[in-house]
Amino acid sequence: MNAVWQVIRRDVTLAMRSRQEVANPLIFFVLCASLFPLGVSPDADFLRPAAGGILWVSALLATLLSLDSLFRADLEDGALEQLVLTRHPFFVLVLGKVAAHWLLTGLPLILLSPLLGVMLFLPQDVIAVLMLTLLLGTPVLSLVGSVGAALTAGLRGAGVLLSLLVIPLYVPVLIFGTGAVEAAMQGMPYNGQLALMGGILLVSLVTAPFAAAAAVRISLSA
């Protein structure tokens, strides 16, 4: 447990030394979400029902952009090799890295989302639901994404490839996340969707770290 904590602290400290890189995905999130009123229609009648989907897709893309650096720097300077060689089971350390990634991107995204929700005319109680779905969903984005990031860590210009590998796996979370927001908007119960998102979170929590750890080992052997 202590080892996980150390990994998280190390990653957060490193990220805090280059704050711009932490801020970039968040700025992208805001920009991406504001493209829709500009590009499609600034009409509240269009934006209100679409807001949940817009914010979810923007959050998904922002997470995707930040994933590329999850293992890359550590792979290049050899730190990842050292982590594999420690006596701790490697998947636990991967879990630590994923947790740090979520703290640096997922959590800020959730905190930013009400601001954008208001700009897209979401009712207040629906904003709360949106934040709840993001709270359940962004960890999944980080966990599942870590597998893709690990597979492509050693490749040059892997950004597009990473999206290609990971986006299909993101679809279920996106569907249930936006589904819950939509249900809340229509005044219908949304606990079914939330329960499914919780289930997806648990499954990815207990499987993704193993897959990512195996993928890191494969990338290291290159």
Binding site: L196, G198, G199, I200, V203, L205
Partner: peptide, 10 residues
Amino acid sequence: LGLAGAVALA
């Protein structure tokens, strides 16, 4: 434990 929880939620 994780899988059991996921099944229960599903």
